[in-house]
Amino acid sequence: MLEVRSVRKNFDGFMAVADANLSVSKGDVVAVIGPNGAGKTTLFHLITGQLAPDRGEILFKGESIAGLPPHAICRRGISRSYQVVNIFNRLTVFENVQIAVLSRRGKTFNLFGRARSMAVDETMEILASVGMADRADRVSGALSHGDQKVLEIAIALGNRPELLILDEPTAGMSPEETAVALALMRRLSEDMGITILFCEHDMSMVFSIARTLMVMQQGSTLIQGSPEAVRNDHRVQEAYLGEGDACSV
């Protein structure tokens, strides 16, 4: 479904992504792991169009999407959430998700419709599916951090993505909140059939849900394979032990 081949991104002499390769097949749950600064977030930015790669190919359903603007990539079926909470602060929870739904339905240039009676059912359905229906009318900027992270995912769902990209979905969450988020990701994958690509530092969380792992180090892909294959790969062990990273594999 998604193919990333030899992608590179250079910032003023700093090689954030040197040679990234990634393959995501339909229905899979793929985790990108690697130490801080390995280029995971940059890779996600490249896939979703916030950044354009210097070279390499990014194919989605067989078509090249490298260098397209974010809104065009989103319309092809890739949605994402952000590592740092990135929502519409002054709007309510309902409105946050509704914007994505309206966008998917191509209604954003509708000038005289009543927004408050549009796409209500679908928006509320999404909020119910992430367990936030009771907070629909709260101003999103005033929510707890955990709720804001879940809202992140809910916004991404508003686009009915085929591929959902989550950048550290449980970062900064309490253990209870993490468990909720994990259950949500499972439902999205198993019940709704959404393909998920995410990155995360919490290894127990990664190994409990991911079916495929991709390991990045210093901007390059080290290996992609099943959790067992990755766990047993000596390069990964070296990389993690050598880096002295807090995460243990």
């Binding site: 916030q50 974010p70 949605s79 990135n86 519409f88 409105e95 686009n159």
Partner: peptide, 20 residues
């Protein structure tokens, strides 16, 4: 309207608006 709502989204967070 939906346009107005989208517009407010852009005000709050243009990056995220383009991502949806």
């Amino acid at each position: 309207s939906p346009f107005g709502r989208t517009f407010q989204g852009i005000r709050d967070n243009p990056e995220r608006t383009s991502a949806v």
